[in-house]
Amino acid sequence: MDDADSLYEILTEGDELTIVCHNNPDPDCLASAFALGRIAAAAGIDERRILYSGDISHQQNRAFVNLLEIDLQPFEVETVQDRPAGSLLAFVDHSIPGANNRVPEGIRLDIVIDHHPAEGIDARFVDHREELGAAATILAEYVRELDVELDSVLATALLFAIRRETLNFLRGATRAEYDAAGYLHDHADRELLRKLSTPSVTGKTLDAIATAIRNRETSSSVLISHVGRTTERDALPQAADYLATLEGVETVIVFGIVGDSIHFSARSPDPRIHVGNVLKAAFEDVGSAGGHHDMAGGEIPLGIFAEYTTDDEQLLGIVEQVITVRLTAELGLSEDTEE
């Protein structure tokens, strides 16, 4: 029995399905959850819910949810604890309770579908393919193999997610992404794809990117910068993407304070540097971090800097110093930098 059939068989055993997105879900996670819900409906599950925690702050993510009318509900831990028989719990685009999600460690999972590096995944059904560029690729494969109805909304969601996750097939794309895109293309809504690809940008996001540009420091081909304090968490990956286009730069790491945490976003096409491993090694003792060799992220609770939180300027200075020292040491860089 192949993966699609095994997944479908588990779904036919359930009366309800709860799909938990990772914190601050992106289009790949949202589209995968949306598609899994459609597959569950085809398997006879009438009660389905998609839960998320954190924020949907990136303008593309907000447009994605609004234009596709994806029904999301805020995460509540009671929903996943002490579930009755027949209640299935699924993760898409992440895989471990407590890692980039608010699900308590030790919670029993029924379904995990993911493409991010991870170890120790435990669920009744696991499809974990690190070699793929997007989780949505896996779900598109299931929709096709199970002959689930593919309307324009579902096709558009999956196609946009694959394009966004792979930066229009320039990052991590495999033959599977191209095959999935070919299958989805004729069913997708071209006008809706255009709207999703060109959402408006908030002034706060632009300000955060401008701050990262001003604060940039480089050593060799590595650029490290920060956005200070911002409410726009998704400005960090946008700043990292922009700074990665700077001539002579191969690796970019951007950090900033969002709420009560320090967030990171990293980009690196340099084959000599695995930024997921860099962030994990630098910060796993104080937070959670990791990802792919060319794209990674992380989060550190501000609790470790609690004594400085009464003075924002002092806090920013201390955070910048500590983070930069850790990154410089892990990357083996000289302390001499240039703007």
Rank of each mutant, 00 (worst) to 15 (best):
Ala118Leu: 09
Ser152His: 15
Ala240Met: 05
Ile107Cys: 12
Ser288Cys: 10
Ile19Leu: 11
Arg108Thr: 11
Val258Ser: 01
Arg272Tyr: 09
Glu191Lys: 13
Val103Gly: 01
Glu250Pro: 03
Ala181Phe: 07
Ala43His: 06
Ala161Leu: 04
Val227Tyr: 02
Val222Phe: 03
Pro271Ala: 09
Thr231Arg: 12
Ile300Gln: 02
Asp93Ser: 06
Leu7Gln: 01
Ala135Asp: 00
Asp312Lys: 11
Asn101Asp: 08
Val143Met: 04
Leu36His: 03
Glu78Phe: 13
Ala289Leu: 07
Leu196Gly: 00
Glu141Arg: 12
Pro237Leu: 09
Leu89Thr: 03
Pro25Trp: 02
Ala33Tyr: 02
Ile107Glu: 11
Arg229Asn: 09
Ile45Glu: 08
Pro27Arg: 04
Glu78Tyr: 13
Glu149Cys: 10
Glu313Met: 11
Ser221Pro: 07
Glu47Asn: 15
Asp241Val: 07
Asp336Ile: 12
Gln238Val: 06
Pro237Tyr: 06
Gly297Trp: 01
Ile213Gln: 09
Leu139Thr: 00
Glu320Lys: 13
Glu13Met: 10
Val112Lys: 01
Thr245Cys: 11
Asn100Trp: 08
Leu302Trp: 04
His128Gln: 10
Pro271His: 08
Arg102Tyr: 10
Leu72Asn: 07
Asp82Cys: 14
Thr18Val: 15
Ile121Leu: 09
Leu154Ala: 04
Lys204Ser: 15
Leu315Glu: 04
Thr137Trp: 01
Lys280Thr: 12
Ala289Thr: 05
Asn215Leu: 09
Leu51Asp: 02
Val153Trp: 11
Ala85Lys: 14
His292Ala: 08
Leu167Phe: 14
Leu196Val: 07
Phe264Tyr: 07
Ala42Cys: 13
Glu141Phe: 09
Gly14Pro: 03
Ala282Asn: 04
His226Phe: 08
Glu217Arg: 13
Val153Arg: 14
His116Glu: 08
Gly106Phe: 09
Pro237Val: 06
Asp28Val: 01
Thr310His: 12
Leu51Gln: 05
Ile70Asn: 04
Val249Phe: 04
Asp122Thr: 14
Ile213Met: 13
Ile162Gly: 00
Leu89Ile: 08
Asp270Trp: 02
Ser57Phe: 05
Ala210Cys: 11
Leu223Gly: 02
Asp28Met: 01
Glu338Trp: 12
Ala99Glu: 14
Ser53His: 06
Leu158Lys: 01
Val201Phe: 10
Gly290Arg: 00
Ile39Ala: 04
Leu67Ser: 08
Asp2Thr: 10
Val275Glu: 01
Pro271Asn: 10
Val258Asp: 00
Ala281Asp: 15
Ala31Gly: 06
Glu119Val: 14
Gln81Asp: 13
